[in-house]
């Protein structure tokens, strides 16, 4: 048997790891085993950001809506299944963001504390997004103006908002 890590030398070290009642066997050559056991804590599984993230895709039992459905959803465009996404920690294409939206929303909040973009918008394809961003800004200013009782300024802002909303249709 060849070492399953380097695939070059003969496996002479056989490790069994049991975590969360899942048994995992590893067959390694001496060199790879030494490397993996090098740390002060002995053998540790290698850390991978994607596997770590994949764990976060796991539904909270408390959130009924997030329970996996039998069969699971699939992205209609790239064909990635919900399960594959959860396992790999990566989305398959731009449409996956729509396909898996209910599952992603809480995840994004966990990672970023929000699920709403507030940065740059592409000049060519983001025309509508740009107007929306401007609209958001104006609405915020309007609230502030009202709070400070600057009614003249508020009236100007309100007109600008109406104008933009009309543009968006």
């Amino acid at each position: 048997m060849l070492c399953e890590r380097c695939h070059q030398r003969v496996a002479t070290v056989h490790l069994t790891e049991i975590s969360n009642n899942v048994k995992r066997e590893m067959h390694l050559c001496e060199a790879c085993a030494r490397e993996l056991q090098g740390g002060p804590f002995g053998w540790l599984p290698q850390f991978s950001l994607h596997n770590f993230l994949a764990g976060l895709f796991e539904p909270d039992v408390a959130h009924e809506a997030l329970r996996p459905r039998v069969g699971g959803r699939r992205c209609g465009r790239c064909g990635l299944s919900e399960e594959e996404m959860a396992r790999g920690g990566l989305l398959g294409c731009a449409s996956c963001y729509d396909a898996f939206q209910p599952r992603l929303e809480p995840l994004l909040r966990r990672i970023h504390g929000t699920s709403r973009h507030a940065g740059k918008v592409p000049a060519r394809s983001g025309g509508r997004a740009k107007v929306l961003r401007e609209l958001q800004g104006l609405k915020k200013q309007l609230e502030e103006a009202v709070a400070r009782e600057e009614f003249e300024r508020a009236a100007v802002l309100r007109d600008q908002i109406r104008e933009l909303e009309r543009k968006l249709g």
Partner: peptide, 27 residues
């Protein structure tokens, strides 16, 4: 911006620039 003249970026009004890993989405 200049590359975007030619390239059609994956962008979503709500989520921003779409990336393979959700840790990079947005900006």
């Amino acid at each position: 911006d200049l590359l975007e003249r030619t390239l059609n970026y994956a962008f979503n009004e709500r989520l921003g620039y779409l990336t393979a890993c959700p840790t990079n989405v947005g900006t």
